[in-house]
Amino acid sequence: MAKKEIIKDPTAKKNIFLVVSRRVFFASASILAFLILWEVAARLKLVSVPAFFPPISKIFGALASEAEKGYLWKNLFISLRRSLLGFFIGLLVAIPLGLLVGWFKTFGDLLNPLLQVFRNLPTLALLPVFVMFFGIGEVSKVSVIVWGVLWYTLLNTISGVRSVDPQLVKAARSMGTGNLRLFGYVVLPAALPFIFTGVRISATVSILILIAAEMMGASTGIGYAMFFYQANFLIPEMFAYIIVMAVLGTGLNFILEHIEKISFRWRDDAGTT
C-alpha cells in the first residue's frame, strides 16, 4: 500500500472531504442500519416480549439519565481503574518475564511446560480461588485481570524475542555489538511489534474479564450495574450499560491499532519502489 500521499492540486480539499466522508460512511453504515432496524422493530412491537426489547431511543434515554445522575461516571471510573490497574500490572510482569524467557533459551525451555499449563486454565474459573485468597474486595478482581492479561503479552513477548532474524544479530555482532547493546538495539526493537500485538489483545481481554468478574461478585462497576438492572427488570438501563461496554472495547482496540500502525511503519513490506 502506498504511504499517505499529500495531494497538492486545487481539488485537494474536496478530495479529502470525499475521502473522509467515505471512511465515516463505511465505518458506521452497518452499525447505524442495525440501530435503525432495532428501533423500528421495537416500535412496531415485532418481538414476542416487547418489555425485553426497548427501542434504541429509550435505551439512549436511560444512558443519558444514568450519566446525568452520575452513576454512569462512577461505575465507569471504578471499572476503568480496575481494568487499567490489572492491565498495567499484567504488562509489568509479562514483558520483563517474556524477555527473560525468550532470551535465555534454557531458562525458557525449563519454564515453558508450566507456562502452557497455566495459560490453558480458564481465567474465570480461577476467580473463586482469588476470592478465597484475597477476599471479595478490589484485590481479587484486579488479580484475576492480571492473570488473564498476563498470558497474551507473555507468550507474544517470548515469540517476539525468539523470532529475531539471526542475520540481524550477525550483522550487529560484526559491528562489535556486545550482549547488552545487542539486547537493546536489536532484540528489543525486533520483538516490539510482537509485544505490542500482545498488549493490544491484553487490553481487550482486560475489559472482558473485568465485566465477568464484576458480574460474579461486586457492588460497583459497569459489569455489576448491568447485572443489577437485569435482575431488577430495568431493561433499557441494562442495555445502556451493554452499549457502554461495546464502546469501551471497540474504542480501546481502535486506539491501540492506530498506535500500532503509526509506530511500526517500518514493518509492512509493501513499500518497495
Binding site: 532474524d165 542475520q167 540481524l168 550477525k170 550483522a171 555482532r173 560484526s174 559491528m175 562489535g176 538495539y185 536489536v186 526493537p189 525486533a190 516490539l192 511500526f264 517500518w266 514493518r267
Partner: peptide
Amino acid sequence: GPSLNRGLIMQGYALFPWRN
C-alpha cells in the same frame, strides 16, 4: 573476535528494518 576495523556486508543486506 569481531571488531570495527572490519566491515561485513552480508548477502541478504541485513539492514535493521526499524531504523531508517
